[in-house]
């Protein structure tokens, strides 16, 4: 019984930790001079990556 409670607690705690970390990280401004940094990663299609060229996705598919 306790193990189930601990499992749920671990799940909620880690989920919340990640959520809070993600939120705080997004709110932290990028340092000066780094606003427009882009990785050379047009070959990678991880669409969740903030450096992914979302805007060009449609064009590429039509090309």
């Amino acid at each position: 019984m306790t193990s189930i409670v601990v499992a749920i607690l671990v799940f909620v705690a880690l989920g919340a930790l990640f959520g809070v970390g993600f939120y705080l990280n997004q709110k932290t401004p990028k340092p000066k001079g780094c606003e427009n940094l882009t990785a050379d990663c047009e070959g990678c299609r991880i669409t969740t990556c903030p450096h992914h060229p979302h805007s060009t996705e449609g064009e590429k598919e039509n090309a």
Partner: peptide
């Protein structure tokens, strides 16, 4: 800022 410039952009990946 300098560390972010060289490593930071790869972290989200």
């Amino acid at each position: 800022a300098s560390l972010y410039k060289s490593l930071g952009i790869y972290l989200p990946l």
